Simulated scan of single mutants.
Amino acid sequence: MVRLSNSLVGILNLVTFVLSIPILSAGIWLLKRASTECDKFFERPVIVLGVFLMLISLAGLIGACCRISWLLWLYLFVMFLLIVLLFCFTVFAFVVTNKGAGEALSGRGYKEYRLGNYSRWLQKRFNSTQNWNKIKSCLSDSTVCSNFQAMYASDTIEEFYTEHLSAFQSGCCKPSNDCNFTYVSPIVWNKPAVSVYSNPDCNTWDNDPKVLCYNCQSCKAGLVQNIKNDWKKVAVVNIIFLLFLVVVYSVGCCAFKNNREENRHRGQGALLK
Rank of each mutant, 00 (worst) to 15 (best):
Leu8Thr: 06
Leu8Asp: 09
Leu14Lys: 09
Phe17Asp: 08
Leu19Arg: 08
Leu19Lys: 05
Ser20Tyr: 03
Ser25Asp: 09
Gly27His: 03
Ile28Ala: 04
Ala34Ser: 15
Phe41Ile: 14
Ile47Leu: 03
Ile47Gln: 02
Ile56Pro: 04
Ile56Val: 15
Ser57Met: 10
Leu58Thr: 13
Leu61Met: 15
Ile62Gln: 08
Cys65Pro: 11
Cys66Lys: 11
Arg67Gln: 10
Arg67Gly: 04
Ile68Tyr: 06
Leu72Ala: 08
Phe77Leu: 15
Val78Phe: 09
Met79Lys: 13
Ile83Gly: 09
Val84Gln: 12
Leu85His: 11
Phe87Asn: 06
Cys88Val: 10
Thr90Met: 07
Thr90Leu: 04
Ala93Asp: 05
Phe94Arg: 06
Val96Ser: 02
Asn98Lys: 09
Glu103Val: 01
Leu105Thr: 00
Gly107Trp: 06
Gly107Leu: 08
Tyr110Thr: 01
Arg114Gln: 01
Ser119Phe: 04
Ser119Ile: 07
Arg120Phe: 11
Gln123Val: 00
Asn127Phe: 03
Gln130Val: 14
Gln130Asp: 15
Trp132Asn: 01
Trp132Leu: 03
Leu139Arg: 01
Phe148Ala: 07
Gln149Glu: 13
Met151Tyr: 11
Met151Cys: 13
Ser154Met: 09
Ser154Thr: 12
Thr156Tyr: 06
Ile157Leu: 14
Glu158Gln: 15
Ser166His: 03
Phe168Gln: 02
Gln169His: 07
Cys172Pro: 00
Cys173Val: 11
Lys174Arg: 15
Asn177Arg: 10
Asn177Lys: 08
Ser185Lys: 05
Pro186Ser: 12
Ile187Thr: 09
Val188Ser: 03
Asn190Leu: 06
Lys191Glu: 07
Val196Ser: 11
Val196Ala: 09
Asn199Val: 00
Asn207Val: 00
Lys210Gln: 13
Lys210Thr: 10
Leu212Tyr: 01
Gln217Thr: 01
Gln217Cys: 00
Gln217Met: 02
Ala221Thr: 00
Gly222Met: 04
Val224Ala: 03
Val224Gly: 00
Asn226Ile: 02
Lys228Tyr: 01
Trp231Ile: 06
Ala235Ile: 04
Ile239Ala: 10
Ile239Leu: 12
Leu242Asp: 09
Leu245Val: 14
Val247Leu: 13
Tyr249Met: 13
Val251Ser: 05
Lys257Val: 14
Asn258Phe: 12
Glu262Gly: 10
Glu262Arg: 11
His265Trp: 15
His265Arg: 15
His265Val: 14
Ala270Arg: 13
Ala270Asp: 14
Leu271Ala: 11
Leu272Asn: 11
